[in-house]
């Protein structure tokens, strides 16, 4: 496998980074980087970390990080997690308020501890902390419960002062969304599986309305909706399927949709195959709505969606 750290890979232009991922020869990983500059979204680092642990330590090769910004990759802990020695020396400042380095989470209790420790580190207001905690919890819990990923979830986050935003990336190398959804549904493609996974009330655990005792099939819909209400990017990539929630036009009245393809979005079903799932979200802190207001809007859409699904299934009697 080959993966290249480009000079720019954020959610807005992530597609081109993903197109460059070479998933052949899965027993080796070669990491290369732009010589001049490396500026990447946390989801890129989370993906590389997750990928690196699927191959034997000796089979991961990382070219020299010559770019001045190469220290960012080191400070976020990528080389450490992949057990690659670094030639870059630096003074490590306290990360509090600026970033959360790459973290591997494998169990439910590890996640709870991580969230408890993460919130104060972010130095954000209480309402914003709720939103961030919510997103991290639901995304990582999906990995723990459904991904069957040997190495669990990898995540990291970065605060961007200029845009006053926090960007979060989570990746795993588990079974992927299609395998999980198809336990109870019939998605023909990875993209169709992503569409179903984002639809409220659809879970791979059952076809029954209301889900199971432990799963309702609402987590990803909530996250997409939070991003939508806050007018932020949200990306999900699994298998060869890719869905990106685009920022809605600031002049248009916001409408939450049950069908993710009803939102302003881009999608692809021909990207290099990612064995697992990766998700990225941007949270612009100035735009973060009060959490309860967010939930009220999401609740209304959820109820409408369930009613529509029920109505769609209704069959009238046939009188001959």
């Amino acid at each position: 496998m080959k993966i290249h750290l480009p000079n720019s890979a954020f959610l807005g232009n992530l597609d081109s980074f993903l197109r460059g991922f070479d998933s052949t020869h899965p027993d080796h990983l070669e990491i290369t980087a732009n010589d001049q500059w490396i500026a990447v979204h946390p989801v890129v680092l989370s993906m590389i970390a997750a990928l690196g642990l699927t191959v034997k330590p000796g089979n991961v090769r990382c070219g020299p990080l010559q770019a001045r910004s190469g220290h960012y990759v080191v400070r976020m802990g990528l080389l450490k997690i992949l057990n690659i020695p670094s030639s870059i020396t630096m003074v490590e400042h306290e990360p509090a308020g600026r970033f959360i380095p790459l973290t591997q989470i494998r169990t439910s209790s590890e996640l709870t501890s991580f969230i408890t420790e993460m919130i104060p580190l972010l130095h954000v207001e209480s309402e914003q902390a709720k939103t961030i905690g919510y997103i991290v919890s639901e995304l990582v819990r999906n990995v723990i419960e459904h991904a069957d990923a040997e190495h669990g979830a990898f995540l990291c986050a970065q605060y961007y002062k200029k845009s006053h935003s926090i960007r979060i990336g989570i990746a795993d190398t588990g079974v992927g969304i299609k395998a999980t959804i198809n336990k109870s549904h019939e998605a023909a493609t990875d993209l169709e599986a992503i569409r179903l996974a984002l639809w409220p009330g659809v879970t791979g655990m059952t076809r029954r309305d209301g889900g199971t005792a432990q799963n309702a099939g609402a987590g990803l819909f909530f996250i997409k909706s939070i991003a939508s209400v806050n007018r932020d990017f949200f990306v999900i990539y699994s298998g060869s399927g890719f869905y990106k929630l685009l920022k809605p036009s600031p002049t248009r009245r916001l409408r939450l949709n049950a069908d993710p393809f009803g939102d302003r979005h881009s999608k692809r079903d021909d990207l290099p195959f990612w064995h697992g799932t990766a998700a990225g979200v941007d949270i612009t802190l100035d735009q973060t709505k009060e959490f309860a207001v967010l939930l009220e809007a999401i609740g209304t859409t959820y109820r409408t969606a369930l009613r529509e699904r029920k109505n769609a299934r209704y069959r009238p009697p046939r009188f001959l």
Binding site: G201, D209, G210, A216, E296, Y302, R303, R307
Partner: peptide
């Protein structure tokens, strides 16, 4: 925030039971 979440869960569970929550 907690009230909103509880309302959502209570609503969809009753919707699933065929009870109109509108």
């Amino acid at each position: 925030a907690v009230k909103q979440i509880i309302r959502i869960v209570v609503d969809y569970m009753q919707e699933g039971m065929g009870i109109d929550t509108e």
